[in-house]
Design a protein around this nucleic acid. Structure first.
Lengths: 127, 127
DNA sequence: ACAAAGAGAAACCTTTCTGTTTCATATTAA
DNA sequence: TTAATATGAAACAGAAAGGTTTCTCTTTGT
């Protein structure tokens, strides 16, 4: 229900503790806070906050069951990461493609130089 | 030459500016700082620091050419990310597998409970 | 009815990020 | 040799991250 922070997937998986939580949850249908905490040397509220962030980006879902809260892993948001990564697959998969880009770049470089003199606002920003 | 910080891939790509730099470099054989800066609304030293972090994790390489420094993209470290992601592919690729894990989890849960009573130190920590 | 268990919220503290401005240094063009 | 260009380094500042302790609230077991 807290909405302010607004993390993204990249930030969410940047922390090793959160990655560990994901791995843990992905191997257990669902777990409550106390059980998750058994796997970490940090305090319960600390783990709770990490979970909150993971929930924020949709990687974890929660539901109340009596006095406890059950958490489970939701893989779907990782597709965004996969998609981001897929762009770079061309670079390992075939060096030919990479080489091709490099050759084309010669022309692109020239274009940028001439364009930027008159239009220095190709500062797309973001992504 | 600065070695202290020691970032990892996950942190390196967590920042949107750094992701943008990667995209930029991957489309240009090599670029110097000034040219890279044209694409961002932040100061040169700020961009320089981002580059330093990317270099730290091996995603960017640099070389001095006269008075300027040329930077280029190095895709190899992204394989670690790909590998990390590959673990989770089972969850989207076939829901049957996911369902299978969930069913097996019933037993796993029981095991954990009985084991944790006597051996509460399955706190692997990390990864 | 009450103590114990399971969690979330709040307040607070440190360290790390991200960015800035200013200064210094090495090349290069006139 | 001098001014301009390209960058790195240092010192600083504000905000965000990650953690802690304490308090409160709800649910459950006796």
């Amino acid at each position: 229900m807290t909405s302010a922070p607004n993390y993204d997937i990249f930030q969410a998986i940047a922390d090793p503790t959160r990655r560990k939580i994901l791995r843990l949850l992905s191997n257990h249908e669902e777990m409550n806070l106390t059980r998750i905490c058994k796997h970490f040397p940090i305090s319960r509220p600390a783990v709770s906050k990490h979970l909150r962030i993971l929930i924020d980006v949709g990687l974890v879902k929660e539901k109340k069951v009596g006095r406890e809260t059950r958490y489970w892993f939701e893989p779907e948001p990782l597709l965004e990461l996969k998609q981001w990564l897929s762009f770079y697959e061309q670079f390992w998969e075939n060096k030919i493609t990479m080489l091709k880009r490099y050759v084309e770049d010669e022309e692109i470089n020239e274009m940028n130089i001439s364009i930027s003199k008159h239009n220095d606002k190709d500062k797309e920003w973001l992504s």
